[in-house]
């Protein structure tokens, strides 16, 4: 189109080619990152994701080894295979990072999260909510005459499914912990 053959996708104001050269399938991966529990370490990890434009679907963090001051950060992220590899490499080269595990590719793993749902309903809807909670093995952890707070633990899909069912029944507030994950097996 122009002398410099600026391609579609480039901005008229910029000569940079802005098209994504590697548009591929987006995958979801769960990463477990073991870090030194030092001041600012979470900010470092989150800053890496925001600074380089990676996605965070879910993030949990807690100290898991009190004597060694190690924390485990579990991150669910999405991206093309190339981006996922890049995220792992970028995490791996950070000074306080000890280990990066991609639980999605390193064999089978278990993933669990905990969610609390406040459902406000009376009459038939209230009963239906209670019946469904029973099916999902959700616990009632608070109750008034017009409301319940349910506690559900399980894989993300189960939590999502329960939320979908509660919505028409009067779901008014949700709190979720994010995913905690471990590989299966003895190692």
């Amino acid at each position: 189109m122009s002398a410099l053959k600026i391609k579609k996708g480039s901005s008229k104001h910029s000569a940079y080619d802005l098209r994504n050269p590697n548009a591929e399938i987006i995958e979801t991966h769960t990463l477990a990152v073991v870090v030194d529990n030092e001041a600012g370490v979470l900010a470092r990890v989150i800053g890496l994701f925001s600074g380089r434009g990676y996605n965070i679907e879910s993030l949990t963090v807690a100290e898991v080894d009190h004597t060694g001051h190690r924390s485990r950060i579990t991150i669910v992220t999405t991206g093309t295979p190339q981006v996922i590899e890049q995220i792992k490499a970028q995490l791996g080269r950070m000074v306080p990072v000890h280990r990066v595990q991609d639980l999605t590719v390193e064999g089978p793993s278990v993933e669990r999260e905990l969610a609390l749902f406040k459902v406000s309903a009376t009459g038939e809807k209230r009963l239906e909510a209670l019946r469904l909670a029973d099916i999902f093995r959700a616990n009632v952890v608070d109750s008034t005459l017009e409301s319940f707070v349910f506690s559900v633990a399980g894989a993300t899909e189960k939590i999502e499914a329960f939320a979908d069912l509660m919505r028409p029944l009067g779901l008014i507030e949700t709190a979720r912990t994010g995913v905690a994950a471990l590989t299966r097996g003895p190692e």
Binding site: M1, S2, A3, L4, I6, K12
Partner: peptide, 10 residues
């Protein structure tokens, strides 16, 4: 030459 052939941007 390049400028001569197009002009849209340049």
């Amino acid at each position: 030459d390049a400028i001569g052939t197009t002009g849209a941007v340049l």
